[in-house]
Amino acid sequence: MKIVVCIKQVPDTTEVRINPKTNTLIREGVESIINPFDLNALEEGLRIKEKMNGELIALSMGPPQAESALKEAIALGCDSGILLTDRAFAGADTWATSYTLSRGIRRIGEVDLIICGKQAIDGDTAQVGPSIAEMLDIPCITYVRKIEEIDKSNIKAQRMMEGGYHLLESSLPALITVVKEINEPRLPSLRGKMRARKEEIIKYSAADIVCEIDSIGQMGSPTVVEKIFAPPVRDKGTMIKGEPSEAAAKLVSELKEKGVLL
C-alpha cells in the first residue's frame, strides 16, 4: 500500500492583517505552519500505514523553505518527503497547483491512496483535492470523517454532509480529503525528530516532473488576483449595561426595534 499525503506550508493566517490606511498586508512575525487539516491527513495516513504495513510519502509544492514542513512530516512518521520546488511554480492558483501536484504524484509512480486536508487555511478553497483526483482520473471522496474499511482495492468512508453523512464505497486508487473530526493528530517523537534531521528531502523541479511550462505557476493559472483590500470594518457595537434582568429587557427591546426579532 503506497500512500501519498499532500501537505501545504501556510502562514498562520490568524496573524495576518491588512493596514486599512494603505490597503496592504501587515506581516509581522507570522509563523509558517503545516496546514492544520493536513495534520489530520498525515495522521490518517500514518494509521493506515501502520495497520497495512504501507509506505507513506509526504508531498508538497512550495518554495525551498517548505522543506521544514516535510521534515516535520517525517518527524511524525512519514517514510519520505518530496518537495516540488521551482521558480516556475510561483503564482499558481488552485488549478495550476493541482496540476503540479498531480504531475508530482505521477512521478512517484503507482499510488493506492492520496490523502489531502479538506482545505488550506490561507486560501480556504477546498479545491485542490478534488482537482488532483480529476487530473489523475481517479475517484474522490471529500470531507471524510471516518474510514470504515480499507483494503488493497477498496475504501469505505463516511463523507460529512450538511445535516448528516453519506457512507460511500470507492475502488482504489482514490483520493480522499479529510475533516478535523476524523482523528486527533499525534505529536512528533524525539526519535522521529532526530530521523527527520538527517533525512534528505527529495526535490523535483518542473523538468523533473515533466510539466509543460504553460500549465504551471502563474502561466498555468486561469485566475488572477485583480486587487486585495481590507474587509469593511464593522461599526463599533453598543454595550448594554445594568443588572441582568435590566440588560436582558433592553437587549430584547432593541432587537425588536431593529427588526432582528419579531
Binding site: R186, L187, P188, S189, L190, R191
Partner: peptide, 10 residues
Amino acid sequence: VLAESDLFAV
C-alpha cells in the same frame, strides 16, 4: 502522549 514522544527515554 509523553511516552509516544519518547520523553521517558531521555
